[in-house]
Design a protein around this nucleic acid. Sequence first.
DNA 1: CAGACTGGTTTGTATCACAAACCGGTTTAT
DNA 2: ATAAACCGGTTTGTGATACAAACCAGTCTG
Lengths: 107, 107
Amino acid sequence: MADELRDMIDIDRIIHEPARLVIVTILNAVERADFLYLQRETGLTKGNLSSHLTRLEDAGYVTIEKTFEGKTPRTTCRLTDQGRAAFKAYRERLQRAIDAAPAPPDA
Amino acid sequence: MADELRDMIDIDRIIHEPARLVIVTILNAVERADFLYLQRETGLTKGNLSSHLTRLEDAGYVTIEKTFEGKTPRTTCRLTDQGRAAFKAYRERLQRAIDAAPAPPDA
DNA sequence: CAGACTGGTTTGTATCACAAACCGGTTTAT
DNA sequence: ATAAACCGGTTTGTGATACAAACCAGTCTG
């Protein structure tokens, strides 16, 4: 009955972390975003943003592309198909879990 | 515009932890539940469940009542009004955050 | 040339989730 | 009567990790 609830316990922790959830939600909407845009949008410190992005990259959820805009470096992030799918799955699972409610213990 | 998103970053971490989210969702539905019921329902180990309950108690979100059922101890948990309110706020905030999407950076 | 800024990465620390070990008490077996 | 197994949890140890501060390579400005 409440299996949707129990499933919540092994939800994707990569996405579940609030900072990353924000990052992924943005990337899901805009398709590509550079580091500074993400920093402004999230309010995260650079260090924090950097490590979350690395974590998302390691998970295969985002690609990070480094180019030069004239002479200044520029880091562009995109959600991968895998990341997009994971985000979709995350939202669905979370929604089902929060809506789920067990029947009273006995009667 | 996407302030709902940024707000997500300071979402209530007490509730956000998946194991506790499951516990709170159950307690929100059933009004009171004993330790063993929660353990069966969540699939958590005893130690893990115990420490999450303590954490929820410390946060003022649940009350833990110890009684005896004949000769065996029995631990009963309830969501406090504060806990119920926090859960409601959590759900609303999460929902708004997930629905929120920023406009593309420039054009 | 010094100093400040840009665009990040690396390092240190404090927190925390988790399971294993433990514990007081009770029931069952010998 | 004693031991051994079980019940209902709590405490302890540890590995992971979120976060910010410090750092760094390069560029621009006075």
